[in-house]
Design a binder for these strands. Structure first.
Lengths: 150, 150
DNA sequence: TATTGTTATACTCTATAACTATA
DNA sequence: TATAGTTATAGAGTATAACAATA
């Protein structure tokens, strides 16, 4: 790579930069592999949480995915139009709607999951299995770090 | 957090998701702190590479930051209009332009660097110094993993 | 009063293609 | 023929505010 020498910059030691670059690589690949199933990274994430009986409300999806509630509306609309999820009334709060995967949604998710596993494997090719485990643990900690007002 | 139970989902174990969430937290904070200097994460990154005598071409910036060359044009335009960088002719190739920070740019970068260090410290609050070192090493590996055609 | 989902709007970021000047 | 920078355009992602129904 002709830009290799830029790794001598201070920027190359900033986590924020490394994270942005890793995510650019990872999401480009994941989006490419997911498009065979009519999904992108964000819609896949919503679908994944709608599967397995978790029954999240839209508000919980927004918080967990760090997306604005209005974005969840659009993503659920899209998945619902494709017949992959349903909005169900929340018995405990009539304001809320619970998002549930249809049979087709569960099946699509199962297939798409294979693609994201492939993408992850490619993105982490430079790491040993032990290193991958460590990375996952550290990333989990920072992904769920409360930031003062969070 | 009312969505905590969604950590039981398979999604919560996917690196791509953890990365997206960590980056959302990190870049929101970094953008907030950088705005006092008239910068955002992307313009800061270009400025950082223009500092310290690295003399990157626009093409090298594009490759290193994984941005399209046309995006570099806009970012350099913006930094140039603010008097923070200059385009200089590349003696070895008249097609290329070398991006160099002005004195004002070096000074702005030095101040902005303090903010990104604060943002990083907040984002990594849950990790020990040793864990931060490990994370940086692992992230460096995956951020510079060649992906087949890359 | 506060919260859930919704609509609307604007802005930032990303992706592509085509053009020019140089190599 | 290929590459560096540029322009243009469209689409995806992000951020904010306001509203109706419900708590």
């Amino acid at each position: 790579m002709t830009s290799d020498r830029l790794q001598d910059s201070g920027l190359a030691r900033e986590i924020e930069f490394l994270n942005a670059r890793a995510r650019s690589i990872g999401s480009a690949l994941a989006n490419e592999l997911l498009q065979a199933h009519g999904l992108r990274v964000r819609s896949y994430s919503v679908l994944a949480l709608a599967c397995g009986g978790l029954r999240p409300t839209q508000r919980q999806l927004a918080e967990f995915l760090r997306l604005d509630p209005s974005q969840i509306v659009a993503l659920v609309d899209e998945l619902e139009a494709a017949g992959l999820v349903r909005r169900e009334p929340d018995p405990s709060d009539r304001r809320s709607k619970v998002i549930v995967a249809t049979e087709s949604g569960e099946s699509t998710y199962a297939q798409a999951r294979i693609e994201t596993a492939r993408a992850e494997d490619a993105a982490l090719a430079a790491l040993t299995p032990a290193e991958r485990t460590v990375l996952r643990e550290l990333m989990t900690k920072i992904a769920f770090t409360p930031l003062g007002e969070d």
